[in-house]
Design a protein around this nucleic acid. Structure first.
Lengths: 194, 194, 194, 194
DNA sequence: CATGAATGAGTATTCATTCAT
DNA sequence: GATGAATGAATACTCATTCAT
């Protein structure tokens, strides 16, 4: 039994996949519509049937990236109560997704909203869908006196995002990076060790 | 007594300053030779007297960026013996320079070697002049068992570099960010406190 | 009793109406098949069921424009014997139709045959169906010595067509414009007035 | 003795000449930057050194068109006192320039401000530099009761501009067309003939 | 040292048209 | 009759770079 209805969608899915791969690997500006079209097996003009502009194509990729990351995040922390354990799961998901599994997520890390003046707000709004989850998670941590949760969040997200610039498959597993990062920032709960 | 050689140098200095400012603010690809020329008060063609290509202009900026950051680093840690205190000074210098004081350093953080395939090696070599200093400093830290100094270095540099994406003047001082980051990663040596 | 044939025709009528409206308002080149399709509530490809090309669509609009204008003209001058009075009626019809009532007629004035090299002859032939009526009407005028009826026709038609470039609803009525134009060109027959 | 300073200007003059010729012959939209570049003996990109956009190129052509027409107008009516004679001179200049002598003036007639939404105001402002002269000239005519000078102006300018659509060299001279148009609209001064 | 003028390869985008379903 | 998905050729425009002067 054939599924002819699906065919159309597959072409756009392919388009998004290739766009994500190229944006992640080369950057947004460095990737041309020709590059994407060629990779997706269509002509440059054909992209415009699916997406009205290069910017909107990026937004579509961003959207899928955020959605995927959020789903993985939600699934990973679901049912975990301990705040530090939740952070551990989140770091794990973030690093595995960004370093290993999703071009869409890689785009989110590589292409920053403020680098596309025209769509900065839209991209930032999408991004916040994920970053707010991280913020909530960190605000729930019992922190030693003097540590600003916002700064802890900036440090963790910064370190995790920056990993994309130095990580190469084969050196360590993303999970091991996550474990190390957690080890470094994890402080004993206030009063428990002294 | 006039020093005509000096005047020529000034033109190139101005050129580098404006290139650094624009590369830092808009990115390398997003900045055109026209932009730079206009900002430096010359015509596009005139840049080529001083630098053979846009890439080489970036390399020159990078070079000044590394040099400046290294000098500040060396001055800050000179005479400081305690390893954690040395890290504190380094974080301070890094964040103040990148967030507040030098467009050249900002370029180093925003433009990554691997984003310019043609000159990746040259830029990476320059970069290492600074990153090796950080590596040495972290290798000297007495770390709790289980913490990989390389991962600690990646975490610290990542968090520090990423600060450029969220920091806006007026929110906190770079020095305060440095203090918080140090506070988070600094662990008492296992078993001993003194 | 349903008349399905009629429904089909309605779709094409709607298509022609919207094409006429857009060609008149924006010009032929400036109007895209997408614009027309969207205005007519169909997809671009669907236009081609009714008309084989954009050019042929314009020809169809032109045809309706000429036909409508001729009908109005014939009705207006029917039964009027006095040549100047006939010219007055004609001016009235022309200006009211073009300035006020028919997008089809507006297209005839805005889109000139010689602007579409490929179909210039066909459009000119259609146009002549109307212009010949004006010519006949002017040739019947008793003119003062020295006035070339061809030049009078060019003057009148030029002034009337050009009105579309300056006329805006609300400034004067098309009928008043027609009255003024007639007043200006109408000369008493040489020597005789009766 | 060579005049090297002139050379640069000549290229831009050539560019404007060819742009005017093509805009007049084919229309603005129908003329591509490639067409113009090829006609001027340069590459398409080179046009942009002289003019920042196609629209601005048109504005430059328009400007020269208005300027030329105004100069000829001023020279023709200078020292002529009789209002009707002044109108005759003006019609002569207008028709000869537009039909016979200047591609720049032809562009003014063929490309209407309202057809280029983006630059309508700028083009209209330029145009008014000339049309105000005509208005002043017609307002000075002693008209028979009942004739609105504004309508007379619209009629004359419309007829004169529209001449471009039917006039072909060899049929009559522009001067003869001017003479006929004047003859048609010229009314005896109020009360002088009865 | 610097400029004015140009180049040529490339960029995103447009649009009339086609055609299997 | 109509549509969804494409095509392909063209369009205005950009930009690093060159080079005679």
């Amino acid at each position: 039994m054939v599924t002819p209805v699906r065919r159309a969608n597959n072409r756009n899915d392919r388009l998004l996949d290739e766009a994500a791969r190229l944006f992640a690997a080369q950057g947004y500006r460095e990737t041309t519509m020709r590059d994407i079209a060629a990779a997706a097996g269509m002509l440059p003009g054909s992209i415009y049937y699916h997406h009205p502009s290069k910017t909107e194509l990026l937004v579509a990729v961003y959207e899928k990236g955020v959605e995927g990351l959020c789903q993985r995040f939600d699934a990973a922390v679901a049912g975990v109560a301990d705040p530090w354990e939740r952070l551990g799961k989140a770091l794990d998901v973030h690093l595995e997704t960004v370093l290993d599994q999703s071009d869409y997520a890689r785009v989110m890390v590589r292409v920053l909203p403020e680098h596309l003046p025209g769509s900065a707000q839209e991209l930032a709004r999408l991004r916040d869908g994920y970053e707010d989850r991280i913020a909530g998670l960190i605000d729930a941590l019992p922190l030693n006196g003097g540590i600003d949760p916002k700064m802890l969040r900036f440090l963790i997200l910064g370190a995790a995002n920056w990993a994309q610039t130095w990580y190469r498959p084969g050196m360590t597993s993303p999970a091991e990076v996550a474990r190390q990062f957690l080890l470094i920032v994890q402080r004993p709960m206030e009063g428990s060790v002294g």
